[in-house]
């Protein structure tokens, strides 16, 4: 059993937790992920590590309440326990030789992008961050990004906060104005990452994407997380989760991500009903 050390609601659909897992906290690096089960008979879900504290043994996770399992996890409170927590899995984000980086995060993907931005800052790189959200209510981690970025551009799709439009708009402006990066790293919804890659392509800037496909074991055993990368099949859990964005078959990945969407919808309703019954 793994203890929930803290819980913080970041916005109506996104929650941050710190889980006590000292061995994971000691090892985890930016870009790696964990797999958890909330309870016995629960589903295994992967979540990217959003930060660690090696002294307290805490591993920070930030999750969007999208399905049954994240719904159940969100019902847990500080001091309570979850059944399983394993990691760190996957490979850390590559940082070698990068002096100037553009981090492009979207929605809850910003939670994963933050430790990457912090890592680059710590290594002395120049960090330009672009973070985008659907609207003002869904904005998270603005102060944290400010602290680790040389420049921060915040976008909302509907213009309800900061600048209106999506993240590719300022990215294109920067590239168009002659700004050059050693690397663009993008983390967010598949469709956003696809368009970030398409935006970067004419400027020939290396572009890394962080993939988060359906997964069970996270150690290379099930192959459920496979992706088509440059016409080769790769496993996100052991070969990734970071890949060269120019080689990823995003359309295939988007289709695979929908494999269980009907099942998920039904399960989520069950969990919501259960929750409603409990509070009545």
């Amino acid at each position: 059993m793994y203890k929930i050390l803290s819980k913080k609601i970041l916005n109506p659909t996104v929650t941050q937790m710190e889980i006590e897992a000292p061995l994971v906290a000691k090892k985890a690096k930016a870009g790696q992920f964990i797999i958890l089960r909330v309870n016995e008979n629960g589903e295994r879900i992967p979540l990217t590590v959003a930060g660690v504290n090696a002294n307290t043994g805490a591993v920070k996770i930030i999750f969007q309440i999208v399905g049954a399992t994240t719904g159940l996890l969100n019902l847990k409170n500080e001091g309570e326990y979850i059944s399983d927590f394993v990691g760190p899995l996957g490979n850390p984000t590559k940082t070698e030789g990068i002096k100037k980086v553009c981090i492009v995060g979207g929605g809850v993907g910003c939670a994963i992008a933050l430790p990457v931005a912090e890592e680059f800052k710590k290594l002395g790189a120049e960090v330009i961050s672009i973070i985008g959200f659907r609207n003002k209510d869904l904005l998270i981690l603005e102060d944290e990004f400010k602290a680790c970025s040389d420049r921060l551009i915040v976008m909302t799709d509907d213009g309800s906060y900061a600048r209106g439009g999506n993240v590719t708009v300022p990215l294109k402006e920067l590239l168009e104005s002659g700004e050059r990066f050693d690397e663009i790293i993008t983390i967010g919804p598949l469709i956003m990452m696809k368009y970030v890659v398409l935006t970067a392509k004419p400027y020939n800037v290396p572009c890394t994407v962080s993939m988060n496909p359906i997964m069970i074991d996270g150690t290379g055993m099930c192959g459920g997380c496979r992706l088509t990368v440059g016409n080769e099949t790769k496993f996100a859990c052991v070969d990734g989760p970071d890949f060269d964005g120019y080689l990823i078959d995003f359309d295939g990945a988007m289709k695979r991500a929908k494999t269980y969407s009907d099942f998920e919808k039904g399960r989520r309703e069950e969990v919501c009903n259960l929750f409603n019954k409990e509070i009545k």
Binding site: N41, G42, E43, I216, M221, T228
Partner: peptide, 30 residues
Amino acid sequence: GENLNGVYSANEFLTRVNLMGAFKPDSATP
């Protein structure tokens, strides 16, 4: 076509059913 929806490795298919109990009607794993 090996990465299409509906293609499983035997490991994934068996893990979902045996380890995660997807054959039970109330399973959390699909």
